[in-house]
Design a protein around this nucleic acid. Structure first.
Lengths: 365, 365
DNA sequence: CTGAAAGCGCTTACAG
DNA sequence: CTGAAAGCGCTTACAG
């Protein structure tokens, strides 16, 4: 108010300096908690800051310091609860450490991924977290080659280069399929995600490995693409369930697709698990709902997001170290058995007693 | 490679200028599509840009132009499909227009909202979209007063100040409740969101208005807080359903809470809709799933996100205009009748014929 | 412990 | 149509 220019532009470090009768450099030192500032001077500066309602310009600071305290987060589909959960954890973890996140949604389109990477680089983000990487991904490969701070989660490159945190998808799928085999299933279908994406590939491989280990041949007609989405998976399952010799069980490449499979089964009048067993991956929140009761290979989504965030921040701190030996974390899968696979028989687990406790998936804070 | 410094730092406008034998100003003109540049010169500059692999520094540009091409998006809970869907639309809409989005998740905590607003201002974002505003929200009120470019969606201020796009929640809730009344219900419970949030208030008011209009008294014991989350709503519904005279229908303040109500009903062995009718708001994707079949007041989430994004960009373009007369859009509700309310009787709609078509909610792309 | 000066990498009047 | 110069609002060696 006292200052004429407060009307037109917001106060700068120079305004604060003038009022505190110090140099801009000293204001900067106070702002950045530089230790050797005389208490008196520091107090004067802080007083001036308050009086003027001074708000440091993070853009100018970014230019001068060559760091933006900003990260890119590139996901395939923020409406997939898996990504929403991990994104939430990432955003919260880095916020507490002074970083913000630019959200990028690629819809699994290489073109959009490429565009976003270009934009993020122009914005000089300090690093990028990819939940969206393709098996063959020249854009991300180039980043890795250049030593650009980045980290993949959920999906990895075919080359296995760079920093990543993933589920052991091959093992997860093998065990999930074996679970169905142990329940007596012999015709097991697979609704897959998109080709050119590691989770889809690894889960497919695990499914095949389990079949072969059980002495069964792999029938290509029992595999259909589901594009990681419920709608596509529903159509895929429809086709599978109309086969002359239809599968008695279906492994869906993720929980979203499992929901589509359940939908398709119902449309055809098939009961779950009696006429069809269904399993998925991720353990999204709705999987635990009593109306769904989906057996699934769980991912610890909040933990994975936290690890990804902390991992990238470490990489940003010491890029050289991770160029030499990348951070590569493979998380162990955990099978969550619910009703949809048929392992919990009605005899053992009457509907109501079974869910008489508060359903854990829906209890947060 | 030819340039020595390409090894150490990335090329700047000065490097490009030198190579193209023009001034930095001219490079800037080419970069910004300034019209009056001789074609020859333009070509030389573009050639130099390509040769050097020049990438404009958006941070420096932001400082010089005093605009960051960045928006803040503040949501209450990105894991709520309503926010995930709207966020997706917002991010995509603004991306196509050269803007990026910093994602902020408040978890409905005023402290976090305040912190994020401060950070976004320091980052000099061009504007903020709030999906998280409180009825009484000094932080956002201050922004509105200051004429800071911002827009609320889903929720509004009690004062009704500022720019916003919301559902007509009062009418939506009135009609939703009336729908239950018309089905013969007389004891209708309400599981509410958080107090101090307009959607919770308006939906509660609408519920009450419908009861009064039907000549019924409003029984406070039939209302319980559900905090906009399934877990809390489940507990709330449990209490309601254990009342001596339990409600025969429950209006949930959103679909997530309706899922919790369904869970609670099942836990108590109550069938839906026969023993309990359940309805919600939002029409999140899972609401249309055949295992859920939730009757709900739909929000056009993608459209709402798109309108919010375009609205804010307009406000940024002409702040003065919207200071004078704010953008305030109230969207009409649309009731989606499914099984959970009991309006579709089994006689009319046998389970399989009812869902024999592809379930629309799960078909995208 | 503090200040003067240069610099971060752009853009934008101002001349010509 | 193009260039020289100043400026955006900070930080950071460099002196002292």
């Amino acid at each position: 108010m006292s200052d004429q220019r407060s009307r037109s532009h917001s106060p700068t470090v120079a305004d604060v300096a003038r009022r505190a009768r110090v140099s801009p450099a000293t204001v900067s030192r106070v702002l950045n908690r530089y230790p050797h500032v005389r208490p008196q001077v520091r107090a004067r500066v802080e007083q001036a800051i308050r009086a003027l309602g001074y708000r440091p310009d993070q853009v100018a600071r970014s230019l001068a310091k060559r760091e933006t305290q900003t990260l890119g987060l590139v996901v395939a589909d923020i409406t997939n609860p898996f990504y929403a959960e991990t994104a939430r954890a990432i955003v919260e973890t880095v916020r507490a450490r002074g970083y913000n996140v630019i959200l990028c949604n690629t819809d699994n389109q290489p073109r959009l991924q490429e565009e976003y990477v270009e934009v993020l680089r122009q914005r000089r983000v300090d690093g990028i977290i990819f939940g969206s990487v393709f098996l063959d991904d020249p854009v991300v490969e180039a980043l890795v080659t250049a030593g650009y701070p980045c980290l993949m989660y959920n999906r990895r490159l075919r080359s296995r280069r760079g920093n990543y945190i993933v589920l052991d998808n091959l093992r997860a799928s093998r065990e999930l399929t074996r679970h169905l085999l142990q329940l007596g299933h012999r015709r097991i279908g697979f609704v897959s995600g998109l080709r050119n994406i590691s989770t889809a590939l690894d889960r497919m491989q695990g499914y095949r490995a389990a079949l072969r280990a059980a002495g069964l041949s792999v029938d290509a007609r029992l595999t259909r693409p589901g594009a990681f989405q419920a709608g596509m998976a529903q159509r895929a399952a429809q086709e599978l369930l109309r086969l002359p010799a239809r599968p008695t069980a279906i492994v869906a490449g993720n929980d979203l697709m499992a929901l589509g499979v359940i939908q398709a089964a119902g449309d055809l009048g098939l009961g779950i698990p009696d006429d069809l067993a269904v399993v998925g991956f991720d353990d999204i929140e709705i999987a635990g709902h009593r109306r769904i009761q989906l057996t699934t290979m769980a991912q610890q989504k909040a933990e994975m997001g936290r690890l990804a965030a902390l991992g990238l921040l470490e990489i940003i701190r010491e890029p050289g170290r991770y160029a030499a030996s990348p951070l590569q974390q493979v998380l162990a899968p955990a099978l969550v058995v619910r009703r949809s696979c048929g392992a919990l028989q009605v005899a053992d687990q009457p509907p109501d007693s079974h869910s008489s406790r508060t359903q854990e998936g829906h209890t947060r804070g």
